[in-house]
């Protein structure tokens, strides 16, 4: 299975894409892919710092509330409930200054292409009464097949929209703070924070390695050379990551780190956060009734 939702578009275009012909080379495609990932994260962070409804909420209320909706959309057997949650999510996106057509549109097309292609055969393969017949191919679309495929796509679209809504309205550091107070182990939160922080460093390094290789590249690489270039870059990056981890450990120790992490907790949960959380949970509960 491939990748889906918004990561779909951080991936480089597929082979044969006119924008990047094969001759343009696989090194470029890796440079583009890594740059796009960096860009995607930067854009999410930018939206998360806009002024909007969800941006004003405490990240804990948002995390729990959106998770409740994801659960409701996943647990219900009624399509109408999935549809309602989807509509509410879009409404919240509009109120939170999330660019619906670009940011969410990307998510939707990504899911449609990925989950859609998986759900498609179910239209014909699920046994049941035929609804219509595809001309020429002579395949029957069955009623249960149609229902099963719609359920899969509907659920995938709705849950992906909700997950995107959370990241697009919450800066990563706020998410980490929320996790701290939601009883996720401190160590896990610290490691997640450091992973995210060094992700950008390593993405940048990897892009530079590919770029450097490309600048020295004359002519086309054959397939084996490409493989070699990719795995050697991964190897260089691995060595660099481990060396960095040693140095970071020293830097942590120099400032008193002894294996146990201590964090500041700023727990300010206001009335409006409580109300918002209650509203989220009430909608989810209604959907499951």
């Amino acid at each position: 299975m491939g990748r889906q939702t918004f990561a779909w578009f951080t991936q480089p275009p597929a082979v044969g894409d006119p924008r990047l012909s094969k001759a343009a080379g696989f090194l470029e495609r890796n440079v583009v892919a890594l740059a796009k990932t960096l860009d995607h994260a930067a854009r999410a962070d930018e939206t998360a710092r806009r002024r909007g409804l969800l941006q004003k909420l405490d990240p804990r209320a948002k995390c729990v509330g959106i998770f409740a909706w994801i659960l409701a959309a996943a647990a219900t057997s009624r399509l109408a409930v999935v549809g309602t949650i989807f509509a509410l999510a879009v409404a919240l996106a509009v109120l939170s200054a999330v660019p619906v057509r670009t940011s969410l549109g990307r998510v939707w097309t990504g899911v449609l292409v990925f989950t859609g292609s998986i759900a498609l055969p179910a239209l014909f393969l699920t046994p049941g009464a035929p609804v219509c017949r595809i001309p020429l191919l002579e395949w029957n679309v069955t009623a249960p097949g149609l229902l099963a495929a719609t359920r899969l796509v509907g659920r995938a679209e709705t849950t992906a929209t909700l997950a995107a809504l959370l990241v697009l309205t919450t800066p990563w550091t706020h998410l980490l703070k929320a996790l701290r107070t939601l009883r996720v182990p401190k160590t896990a939160v610290v490691i997640l924070g450091m992973t995210h922080r060094y992700l950008f460093l390593l993405l940048g390094l990897a892009r530079d390695y590919f770029e450097a290789r490309r600048s020295r590249q004359v002519g086309r690489l054959d397939n084996a050379q490409r493989r070699h270039a990719a795995t050697a870059t991964a190897g260089v990056l691995l060595g660099r990551s481990l060396a960095l981890s040693d140095e970071v450990f020293m830097a942590m120790r120099a400032r008193g780190f002894r294996g146990e992490v201590h964090l500041l907790q700023d727990a300010r949960f206001r009335t409006r956060d409580g109300l918002a959380l209650a509203a989220f949970v009430a909608v989810a509960a209604l959907g499951l009734l």
């Binding site: 892919a33 390593l202 981890s245 780190f257």
Partner: peptide, 21 residues
């Protein structure tokens, strides 16, 4: 204590490698 930075950097590395073509 070393596991904190080691896991962080290695996870970041794994993520970046998942992006490679």
């Amino acid at each position: 204590a070393r596991y904190v930075p080691l896991l962080s950097l290695f996870s970041a590395f794994s993520f970046v490698v998942m992006m490679f073509n």
